[in-house]
């Protein structure tokens, strides 16, 4: 009996028609394509994009050169040199992130005791020649200055979960 049933199912193309019904239904389904330059998907406040170094409201840079981020970085993308500043505080003389090596894991951000190194929502950046994606301290600070409002807002929003 089962055999006869299968025979007819095969010759009536039962399964093929069933499959085509599925694709036929999806033909009329709502399309989920995001037309990227015109539309963008929503981002989480925890979005991990381009790095930035933050400053306090006074204009003083936050980074104290503890090198925790350098130590935790799994891709060895961070390079830090530290020296004493005239006023006796410990500050970085060099803070470079090689974005070519970086895997955007967010460990540097998490390890930072003063929230100095952060990852912003910026993801649309390019390098046109070798070395363009090697970000120095000045570039990171400039990023921080540029996006401070958004950065502060995201940190505040996420603070209650940390």
């Amino acid at each position: 009996m089962e055999k006869i049933k299968n025979f007819f199912k095969t010759f009536l193309l039962y399964e093929l028609v069933k499959g085509m019904a599925v694709t036929g239904r999806y033909f009329f389904a709502r399309k989920i394509t995001v037309q990227y330059p015109d539309e963008k998907t929503p981002q989480s406040p925890r979005f991990r994009g381009l790095h930035a170094q933050r400053r306090y409201a006074s204009g003083e840079e936050r980074c104290i050169g503890c090198k925790l981020c350098e130590a935790v970085c799994p891709a060895l993308a961070i390079k830090i040199e530290v020296a004493e500043r005239e006023d006796g505080t410990r500050r970085t003389t060099q803070y470079d992130i090689d974005l070519v090596k970086c895997i955007f894991c967010g460990f540097c951000e998490e390890s930072c005791p003063v929230d100095a190194i952060v990852e912003t929502r910026v993801f649309e950046y390019v390098g046109e020649k070798k070395g363009d994606l090697y970000y120095t301290k000045a570039m990171l600070l400039a990023n921080g200055d540029k996006h401070e409002a958004q950065i502060a807002k995201d940190r505040a929003e996420d603070a209650k979960f940390r």
Partner: peptide
Amino acid sequence: KVIGYMQIRIGPN
């Protein structure tokens, strides 16, 4: 277009 629509994409536009 047709294959795109069946894969819930929009195809070339």
